[in-house]
Design a protein around this nucleic acid. Structure first.
Lengths: 262, 262
DNA sequence: CGTAAGATTGATTTCGGTCAACTTCAGTGG
DNA sequence: CCACTGAAGTTGACCGAAATCAATCTTACG
């Protein structure tokens, strides 16, 4: 599973940067990649480093175009208001780039924090440019990945603005399941759910007390169960209808995702 | 509710694509442009077309990388939920690109609508690439423009999630004033305010009735006045403090904006 | 100058927040 | 192996900000 002369110089290649990383799996949804594309991509990923749960992810390098990619674990982009309130602005799952560009603005307006232990790899800006220049498939894939992230961000605005508590939570679960499914991390109707109720509250602009009650309501409606950090969706169609969730915006791909019942 | 398109082709005037367009003014904040950069930029802008107030802005071409730039008027990105509720996801002001890429996703998940009559110019994808290739200043400027738009989007999430009604409205006013100021459209402490109270409600996830009361409260606190589609900020520091507004995320530039008291 | 969109105001309701107590659970060390 | 600890989750009583419903009033403009 190892190859050199991948157009580069990279000598030693640790395990984490192998061909089957979550970023590659995700990009497959956005463009049909050639074997060589996957090779180049894997070669561009720096060795993984690990961040402890609840620690902030900080930039080290100085290259504003470089991209940190999550290989394992969950993280979030968040903002802490002067009055102490916290709002999670986006959730970052395996395969997601977590645009460290933000570290290059004058003042950091939102931080990136690990919600669980996180393993990260970096693609340098120069390597990124080369990837895009060499492969139009990769260029297309990265371009559409950005569109997808943006669409997800817009949909969060819609949730916070116009969805009720139960709709919001339902929508979050639909989104997370779809995103995890896209990188092969959903197991049929179930997937990991690594957020605490307080995290959910910080993401959905509510209190953990009310999340708890809403969760109970979703359980009582027999739409989901949530046990041992694992979410199971019993009635996918029902949950999506309640959430007014339209699955296509997450991936909007050619192939269609694997575990989308109904 | 939406009228049909304004047919386009209204009095094409190369005038609008002159050197002093709002996009150029905005980009100046992000990188120091040479005369030649401004020239190239102006040349890349297609003749302006006009969209009627309350009409949707639709894509015509087929080039996913092309960018529509607002030259005059206000628009918004919005989403209409199946239950009829409307949420404005972002506001688009003169100088803002309104990423028509969205029209190239399978299903359009959010539309772009004119809030006032809008005049638009387009930069083709190929022209865009050339601009970036020829001038690293323009490349830098467009790159940072994207960062800024993203930061604004994140801040909306924070507003909807964690700010109270009056804080939200105050924050919106601070943001709009800063953005208009950056393209030379603020006049000291005052600027145009082309949103109806219903628009504000749709942007801030509230009802127009409550916007009205909140507006009154802001007036009573002598922070602002709003008359004849014009906003005047009487106590900039007070408004910013109330909104927990941190001006730098909007532009975060070298030069600093012109009308930022204190 | 008539009309419709927008703005204003009051009365009432409701969803979600606040406060507070209590339980469960995972991990740690004696 | 159990006792202790702190974080996470659960539940109840009460409160309050914003929604809803409804009735004007004002303004822009054809």
């Amino acid at each position: 599973m190892n190859k050199h002369d991948a157009g580069g110089f990279v000598g030693d290649r640790p395990r984490s940067t192998d061909l089957d990383n979550p970023l590659a799996r995700k990009l497959e949804h956005f463009a049909r990649l050639a074997d060589d594309d996957r090779l180049q991509l894997a070669a561009a990923l720096s060795p993984a480093r690990t961040i402890a749960a609840r620690a902030d992810i900080r930039e080290e390098g100085d290259d504003p175009r470089s991209v940190n990619v999550i290989l394992d674990g969950w993280a979030c982009r968040y903002r802490q208001l002067p009055n102490g309130q916290r709002q999670i602005v986006s959730l970052l799952l395996p395969g997601d780039p977590c645009d460290p560009q933000v570290f290059h603005q004058r003042r950091v307006h939102h931080a990136i924090g690990a919600l669980t232990p996180v393993s990260l790899a970096q693609i340098r800006g120069s390597a990124m440019k080369e990837l895009m220049a060499h492969s139009s498939a990769l260029e297309e894939a990265f371009f559409r990945e950005r569109l997808s992230a943006t669409a997800i961000q817009y949909e969060w605005t819609v949730s916070l603005g116009r969805r009720s508590a139960i709709e919001r939570l339902a929508h979050l679960f639909c989104e997370l399941h779809a995103r995890l499914d896209a990188v092969g991390l959903a197991d049929g109707a179930s997937c990991a759910m690594l957020l605490t109720q307080t995290d959910m509250a910080n993401a959905l602009g509510q209190t953990s007390v009310h999340i708890n009650r809403t969760l109970k309501e979703l359980r009582d409606m027999e739409l989901i169960t949530l046990r041992l950090r694992r979410l199971t969706i019993h009635d996918h169609a029902g949950l999506q209808a309640l959430a007014m969730f339209e699955p296509t915006y997450v991936m909007d791909d050619e192939v269609g995702s694997s575990a989308q019942p109904r």
